[in-house]
Design a protein around this nucleic acid. Structure first.
Lengths: 193, 193
DNA sequence: CGCGGGTGCAAGCGGGCACTTGCATTCGGC
DNA sequence: GCCGAATGCAAGTGCCCGCTTGCACCCGCG
């Protein structure tokens, strides 16, 4: 593992753990087992380092929703679980990327690419669902996508703002909680409550 | 208007505008037309000052949802509009209170009280709605409440993470977008899409 | 062998921040 | 008119941060 690789991996790790601002160059260097100066010699600045680290991370992103929908409930459940788990891993990164937009616009824009792409994919999937007759026609698929993502987002990222405090829910709990509601909202529900 | 009042008002204004960290004591003092030293002489520390400012703010909080539900759509629409507008006003405060939890736990806890209380009230209202037969029975009213709040939250606070960027939507747009979906989710919908 | 690139190390710079200190000024109540 | 409380003002302290500098070292390659 090259020096650069170790630095980038450590940067991403620390970044996820504590957010943008608290991810100091000293701490990243320590985590990478490298002198702080080396960071700047190889990446120029903290911003460039983190940008590069995020670029690498986002290179690998799997497709979760099938091109031809068959079982809305099962497919959305899988999507919810994976997405919730991923989001939980980067929640501090997401939080800080919302506060530091002015200070690091490009970096935060990159941080938002992931969620944006996920929302777009979900929206497209919902359109396919409606086209296939697996749910009611959706006048605003993007709105429906936002509502489902918003639920996950609230549970994971905005947890401390919700009643019953801090306990981070498991992905399956999130699916159990919001999938029935969502399926009824888009008219893809099997039964009634 | 006393010196303390001017300072507290300025603190709240700046706090809302730029968030916790960027609300420096220098800036608050300038905004209040007061010397920076006066802040510390009267409130001891930045944290105490902001805590007191938030305490005053949250003292006045109106009830939005009626005790005896009559028209779910109209009542929830009103709630959505008011709540979305309020949340938009404090979005930077909310954002930073999610990042700075470790640095200022008490202060952030206080910042979260508002949204928490709102979620609890909404949840209770939904239970009343179900009890009155105005919607289907809700096995998890708190979950439904979170989903609706999550939608507003996403639109207002997490806007940069959504597709189609930064444009802050008007409260009525948010209501138009999510109310039909939500009403169908809880089985309170009048018509079909 | 010598050279040069990559790295470590110690120190420091400049800036921003919360917060302090010492002193001058104003102003209202006795 | 005088005292004391509230405030202004200038300067400074200590901390942390991103980032720089100068110098030593190690190591592979010609």
């Amino acid at each position: 593992m090259s020096t650069d690789d170790r630095i980038l991996a450590a940067a991403m790790r620390v970044f996820e753990e504590v957010g943008l601002r608290a991810a100091t160059t000293r701490r990243i260097a320590e985590e990478a087992g490298v002198n702080e100066v080396t960071l700047f010699r190889r990446f120029g600045s903290k911003e460039q380092l983190l940008t590069e680290a995020m670029r690498r991370r986002q290179a690998s992103a799997p497709r979760l929703l099938p091109e031809a929908p068959r079982d809305a409930e099962a497919e959305l459940r899988h999507w919810l679980c994976v997405h919730a788990a991923q989001l939980a891993q980067v929640r501090l990164l997401i939080r800080s990327s919302l506060t530091e937009i002015d200070a690091h616009p490009k970096l935060c824009a990159r941080a938002h690419e992931g969620p944006r792409r996920i929302a777009t994919e979900l929206s497209a999937y919902l359109e396919r669902l409606a086209a296939a007759g697996l749910c009611d026609p959706l006048p605003d698929p993007a709105g429906a996508a936002t509502m489902l993502m918003g639920a996950v987002f609230s549970e994971v990222v905005a947890r401390p703002m919700l009643p019953d405090g801090e306990a981070p829910p498991r992905p399956e709990q999130i699916a159990d909680r919001y999938l029935p509601l969502f399926l009824r909202a888009i008219g893809a529900s099997g039964g009634r409550a």
